[in-house]
Design a protein around this nucleic acid. Sequence first.
DNA 1: GCATAGAAAATTTGATCACAAACTCTTGCT
DNA 2: AGCAAGAGTTTGTGATCAAATTTTCTATGC
Lengths: 225, 225
Amino acid sequence: MTLQSAAAPDVGVPVHEQVYRQLRERILFGGFLPGKAVTLRGLAEELGVSAMPVREAVRRLIAENALELHGNRRVSIPDVCGKIIDEIWSARRLLEVELASEALENLNEKDIQVLQDIDDQIDVALKTGDVEGYMRGNYEFHFYLYSRSRSEILIKLVKNLWVQFGPFMRLIYGRSGTANLEDRHKQALEALKSRDQNALTEALEADIAQGMGFIRESLSLADKT
Amino acid sequence: MTLQSAAAPDVGVPVHEQVYRQLRERILFGGFLPGKAVTLRGLAEELGVSAMPVREAVRRLIAENALELHGNRRVSIPDVCGKIIDEIWSARRLLEVELASEALENLNEKDIQVLQDIDDQIDVALKTGDVEGYMRGNYEFHFYLYSRSRSEILIKLVKNLWVQFGPFMRLIYGRSGTANLEDRHKQALEALKSRDQNALTEALEADIAQGMGFIRESLSLADKT
DNA sequence: GCATAGAAAATTTGATCACAAACTCTTGCT
DNA sequence: AGCAAGAGTTTGTGATCAAATTTTCTATGC
């Protein structure tokens, strides 16, 4: 049982680890609908592996907030209500502003170039209406920046926040399209180039607030139905 | 296979969940030496259960930072170096100050009484030199306070920080005893009673700094050997 | 008609075994 | 002596099956 799909370095990697990575990506970038119920057998069959590796991967994903475990032992894709969303966003603001500030101190020219390249890819995705491409680019931009902070522990905590709203964001973007998505990364890039921490914080908060705004809007629409 | 030990409500709770709780407690309050290697078979035999539930519990504990997974697939109790400790402590300051501030707004008289009671238990533990009792009391005090913030997500993140230094703290307390442990909780309690957020932040930062100081001291001693 | 109890199906959970990877200790060579 | 190769042991990984739990379906009574 090898689960070879792409040109990934899956040699020597346990199946449960491969399953974990695959499921996490799908959750993070919207391969599942929020609230969708999943079963061990179902996932195992879908991925073409036995139940055992799926069990370990799912157990891990639950611990990372990427899956929800209910009292009746059933598992589902996270479906965040308004209260939880507020919590996630306030946590994001707290942690990501801190990470960006720390990152700014270690940032060199090469890093800025990398971020510039990612932003270019985001532009392409926005122009072509590639929702998943935008989400991947957005993720890469944020976490490449944060990786410069060398605060591995904080980064892991923030990743465990992102997986919670991934499915939901995809749903929203899928409905509204990428047209009215403003690219806040350019503002952040300018701040990075000029080493302006206040401007960076401002850009980041605007970026986070934009996502929050989308979700609030969508939730209030959903409430009316 | 039931694993009934105390008067715990273990009826209907899966074995892997019981194993998880038991191991987490031991890690958090110093039942293992930092860096100690553990094996699935070993833990299973020790706890009197089969390997399967241990596997699931261990996978979950790894995801929660309560256990370390190494490149060779072996698992061990967290052994934090100086760099990681700095990271954990700066994260603690950031998150716990926020949680305490939010909690202060929702705190009522009954909550303060509960915290007072916990502090009394901490006093007893300190007087009798009961290291584990002190650690449990300290944990309860902090997390009862934070629970008033209703920020479940942030609380979970902070819990995933605490499990990382549990084994190490126990080692340090075990060496130096409880005699020179100053009780910073009284200072926090006063701040809570007078609803003084600045004083609360100050008390909390002092408490966190004290723990940090202990660890730094211990690490610098270890370096000399 | 609707609620409810029981049967049937689906799902999680726990146990056991075979296999593969990693580690350890020994042996043999230079 | 020091190092490398190899056998044996330990440990993680994956597969399969039985048991327990939960859900869904069905039929029966009021």
